[in-house]
Design a protein around this nucleic acid. Structure first.
Length: 278
DNA sequence: AGCATTACCCGCACGC
DNA sequence: TGCGTGCGGGTAATGC
């Protein structure tokens, strides 16, 4: 369920309990969860490492360890929660890290549990972050993401806006929900060819991307389908998942089409394919 | 050659 | 019961 705001929320929630804790053991229940290195090496190398930092890069949760980095990608249905180390494994539990502290602290007797019904989520352990996140585009909430950069990049590519914004090597962190929401706020049709975007449109898109991501973070992310994690941004969707319901701006019905294999929601009145000067 | 696009795939749960 | 759908992205094939 995680896009940038959801992963950000998870990182913020877990950070206090994880910082300073030591990973005493990794218990792997679904082997393919480990993307790198091999199973045995993963278990061997993570044992005894302490957690120095809990952060996010794009949709990856990044955990800096005393020796290396742990990257976790939740893909479609993954979730991370702290549980009692002695708790029985849930139906979809894939990986469990037992935690330990030198002195009694928030993580005492706890375990970090990765559950994932669809088994798409993956975990990496590496000394070189670039090996995992090296190809990601800029962070949309960082200073590197400027109107000038976005405008230039949109003009240089020749792709439809929606698939381009979903491309993590273009920009890191946007997923299907926030892309639809951002294009709506920017009043841009999802199938607009990127190189036809004007400077003014790029300005709107830049602002819209930052707005929807900040809204999502402020709402602690979105909880949709059968995965509920406390976020409530799903109650503020303007177009995503609102096919056939009125557009909040003009009242026309939200329509849905398929773009780049993804369901795409928008208002054909507010987001015309071409913008006519009048 | 080098992009970009498309199709397909991967487990599972859910709604209709 | 069966079928379509999906908060993601990797790969392979195809198109420009």
């Amino acid at each position: 369920m995680p896009e940038l705001p959801e992963v950000e929320t998870i990182a913020r929630t877990l950070r206090p309990a994880l910082l300073g804790a030591e990973i005493s053991e990794a218990e792997i229940r679904w082997a393919r969860t480990i993307a790198h290195p091999s199973l045995g090496e993963f278990q061997e190398r993570i044992r005894g490492q302490s957690i120095q930092e809990v952060d996010r890069r794009g949709k990856f949760l990044s955990v800096r360890l005393s020796d290396g980095y742990l990257f976790i990608h939740l893909r479609m249905s993954g979730d991370l929660v702290l549980q009692e180390a002695s708790s029985p494994p849930g139906k979809h539990e894939r990986l469990r890290w037992r935690l330990r502290r030198a002195q009694a602290g928030p993580a005492e007797g706890q375990a970090l549990v990765f559950s994932d019904p669809r088994k798409f989520g993956r975990v990496w352990l590496t000394e070189d972050p670039a090996q995992v996140v090296g190809d990601l585009g800029p962070e949309p909430l960082s200073e590197a993401f400027t109107v000038a950069w976005l405008y230039e990049q949109l003009r240089r590519h020749r792709r439809l806006l929606k698939p381009l914004l979903l491309d993590q090597t273009f920009l890191a962190g946007l997923g299907n929900i926030y892309t639809d929401e951002a294009l709506y706020l920017a009043r841009l049709h999802p199938a607009t060819p990127s190189h036809t975007v004007t400077r003014e449109q790029a300005e709107r898109l830049h602002a819209a991307i930052q707005t929807v991501l900040q809204e999502g973070i402020r709402s602690n992310g979105a909880s949709i389908d059968w995965v509920y994690r406390g976020g409530e941004f799903q109650n503020h969707f303007r177009v995503y998942g609102r096919t056939g319901q009125p557009c909040p701006t003009c009242g026309a019905l939200v329509v849905k089409l398929r773009l780049g294999q993804r369901g795409t929601h928008f208002c054909s009145t507010c987001q015309p394919l071409r913008e006519y000067a009048d």
